[in-house]
Design a protein around this nucleic acid. Structure first.
Lengths: 184, 184, 184, 184
DNA sequence: AATGAATGAGGGTTCATTCAT
DNA sequence: AATGAATGAACCCTCATTCAT
């Protein structure tokens, strides 16, 4: 397996468990079964490693949302489909979820990196923007609405991980929670 | 001013800015204008200092919510009043908000500490539980509903701090967002 | 004894023996019988430690030259007296001599530090300048003459240390060597 | 061009600029446009590379002095001719000069290597020895005299490089400085 | 209670060297 | 002969904590 991949994986696991500063490079190298110096062949330093992990995670999140079945016939159905896709991604990838939550606003990630990775989030912004224009959603600033809707997914995922699971019914109820909040 | 208070204040400010591990005790002692050893007269070690800060912050949050005018006449009005009280506390105390968000789930805070500080949160759980029983709110697990509603406040506060402000109108709209989500 | 002094002394000894990069801070701390961190209480980092040592050494050199008996009656006698004073300092302080020779032009010492420490050398420049004006010495650029005369002292000191000693006679002969070179 | 030669050249340039320990093998390999491993095909390790460079440099110095026109008619003229030949070599090859000055006494060069490379210096020792015997030069230990005379060349070269040049006149004056110092 | 110099374990990072290709 | 990814020991430096004052 690619060493770069092994390092990123070990980093994700350790960093969500211990936090950035409580995860020494030596611990990462041990978990990745790689020499300490090898990490530095692939990542300039610890910060760059973190940023690479952030970029990788955002990319995966973007891909997950594109798996939602959106056919444009019924806005509510499409909305819930996207909501559930993201929820499932967060539920299935607890480390990635925690990592993104924790580092989204941290000073470890440079503004430019965040800006650049925003592209993976653009489709959902567009979808909500369209909903606002068409009158399906509340007439709000689209950035604010996006943040609020995303907040409902994040809260739901947090509950999922605390509970170590959630029934199909409960998930649908939470999607409904989000939909009623956002709809016009 | 009490040295203990000065230390806690300096810690809050520095830790939200830099994170736990990127905030040396020496930096705290400098900001608090206190000798390094003095911190250890008031707090056994760095972790204990953090836990004390957590307890203090939760207490303040609890007090803020008790300022809401809840008269029991109209459930929706009371719901929004509490929602806005908490939001205002988070808006006015950005460091405390950030700190609680960041460390609520971090491994730095021992489970027992978290459990103990839950008491400050009990009134709102009771209020929502009553709403469910009375049929004002969705019939959901009260813990789940509480987490979801709290999530809307946290998202709103995050937006407030990113935007560096939010109009009265926008705040009311966000309270409405939460209410429509939660109501039966 | 002052820890700062102990550290400087250990550094001088080790650095002349091994060179800057071959002398780990851990080695210095061990020789000075001081914890590694203690060095950093007295010197910001390794480079600053080196610069402090340089400044200290230049100061000592300046003091040594002021011990020469210069009465202004006979220029040749005064010239040789100064020459021998500096020679004796270099002979008696082999480490300081080696250190100054080695680091005088090294990139470790910042230009500003060198400029600043030049003051300890000013008296001899003045003395040689006066000799040129009065016709006692060759009519040359005073900086060049100073460098050449200093070179003779340095060469003599090098010989002294290689030979592990030099007779009074030989020293006088070398002072004479320098005088004949420099005199008009 | 021969890779061995490229490596030696890169090493000379980098080592005079940064010093031995501040010049990683990777830096040398990059400058020489050669893979890291390739250096180890030509030189057993870093120390051996340094010693090879030392030997090469001493050889070049020896060759330069042999270019002096020495016809045995006038000792003073021959003395100055040799002095100037060496000076010109040091002036033209600033890196080699610096390197030899810096590493002549350093612990990096083994005694045996230094002994072996002394052969390139033998002709000048013989020339000065003859001058002493014939009464042209001061009656001194020939090794001491050689060191002192060489010191004047080295000082002159140092001045040359600091000044970034020196007039023909000045050079003659410095040769005269050396001659008056050494002559009987 | 308060101070701050001192400690030394442990962190991020570098780099001489190896070895499979 | 030549390559360059990989190694891991060793470096500089930081910082939680102690303790004599």
């Amino acid at each position: 397996m690619d060493k770069r991949e092994l390092i990123l994986e070990a980093t994700l696991e350790l960093i969500t468990e211990n936090g950035f500063h409580a995860t020494p490079m030596s611990m990462i190298s041990k978990k990745a079964k790689v020499a300490a110096g090898t990490i530095y062949h692939h990542f300039e330093n610890k910060e760059v490693l973190l940023e690479a992990l952030y970029a990788e995670s955002k990319k995966k999140m973007g891909r997950a949302m594109q798996l939602a079945t959106v056919n444009g016939e019924n806005y509510e159905t499409d909305f819930k489909s996207i909501w559930i896709s993201l929820f499932i991604f967060y539920a299935d990838n607890s480390n990635t979820f925690q990592f993104l939550e924790q580092y989204a606003q941290s000073p470890f990630i440079r503004k430019e990196t965040k800006e650049e990775q925003r592209k993976h989030y653009q489709p959902i912004i567009d979808f909500l923007g369209e909903g606002i224009r068409k009158g399906n959603l509340k007439s709000m600033d689209v950035e604010i609405l996006t943040e609020m809707v995303h907040g409902t997914v994040a809260s739901a995922a947090k509950i999922f991980h605390q509970n170590k699971g959630l029934s199909k019914n409960a998930i649908d109820q939470l999607a409904q929670f989000a939909w009623q909040a956002a709809k016009a």
